[in-house]
Design a protein around this nucleic acid. Sequence first.
DNA 1: AAAGAATGTCAACAGTCGTTGGCAAACAAC
DNA 2: GTTGTTTGCCAACGACTGTTGACATTCTTT
Lengths: 199, 199
Amino acid sequence: MNGSDSTSTVPSSGAPRRSDATRGAILAAARERFATDGYERATIRAIAKDANIDPSMVMRYYRNKEGLFAAAVAIDLRLPDVSGADRRQDAGRILVEHFLDMWENNEVLTALLRVGVTNQAGAERMQGILRDQLLPVARQVCPDPEQVPARAALMTSQLLGLALTRYVLRMPPAVGLARAEIVAWLAPTIQRYLTAPSP
Amino acid sequence: MNGSDSTSTVPSSGAPRRSDATRGAILAAARERFATDGYERATIRAIAKDANIDPSMVMRYYRNKEGLFAAAVAIDLRLPDVSGADRRQDAGRILVEHFLDMWENNEVLTALLRVGVTNQAGAERMQGILRDQLLPVARQVCPDPEQVPARAALMTSQLLGLALTRYVLRMPPAVGLARAEIVAWLAPTIQRYLTAPSP
DNA sequence: AAAGAATGTCAACAGTCGTTGGCAAACAAC
DNA sequence: GTTGTTTGCCAACGACTGTTGACATTCTTT
């Protein structure tokens, strides 16, 4: 039920501490609360209660609420490589399918979008993801380097728009779309944004 | 600077009251605060201060915060008619241009999106707009009535996604897009979502 | 077994929030 | 001029927020 897949609970360096379980419980609870409630309504008290610990532990391990948020939404999109000549013409479909997998198995993305819309730190985090992870993908398949930012922005607008209407606003017609339907409609759009000659 | 265009400050029925100026000031301040801060951080005290009145006046005129929000974000997208045979094949371009005009001249839309992401009432309001205003447009141009909800959802995902990245998250590459560029890229997408045979 | 660090609980702080009721001034009707 | 209504300000309420420091407990090391 929780997203213990992409963001490991245990830090990669240093000896494992006895409090790692608590740290992990806090992060998991924080991700869930941020994803469903947004930044302001995800209170430290509620997160602590979900994690079955005292609110003051959150402060001890993550300094303050901003620190907790920063730790909770660290994410790597693990975007697939689409630089091969054969995969380049399939980039649209590959990317759309990868995004659907990501959104459906990782509540960090929902938390990030919900918070990014009303919180400056969240918005900057999203800008960073676009800059560090999506731009490079566009660079792999787009011919003219000068057009890379524009094409990446277009791709992002379509992918985030689908996530917004389907996973955040939960608009009934968007929720009702079948996965195959989404791929069939969106893949050509993304492919065109990335590789078609500018109109 | 404010959006006194689409949503009239003075109610359409009843004798004009002496307090209409105050009511209007409250609504204008509320729209601006909701648009920039979201629901939770747009406090009644801050809105009242912007409107140069006492916080209790807000409660007198709009019952509570929910009532104020409902009054502040009433909006009519005034979507153009695209049912004519000649306009039907231009629907994509017409709709994209109309949406850009709307977003750039009306802060109600920003308020609605910012609030809809973290607030249930806001999300339902957005669902209502899709149902009452966007679905009919799709119905005008889409051949098969059974496919109307899916096509409207696809159109909405692309249009809201652009608004999200450009006007709310303000991602630099999305902000950097020229208006003509957006129209040239998005119009074919919308046109395809509405009229192309299902893939 | 003793000492020290790590982990956790408890109670409280200062501030902000939405909301309420009482009271003064400005206006309208007679 | 008196009455009643509208419009506004002021002070306060209870609840909730992020955050802090003191104290108890458990583990680790010697």
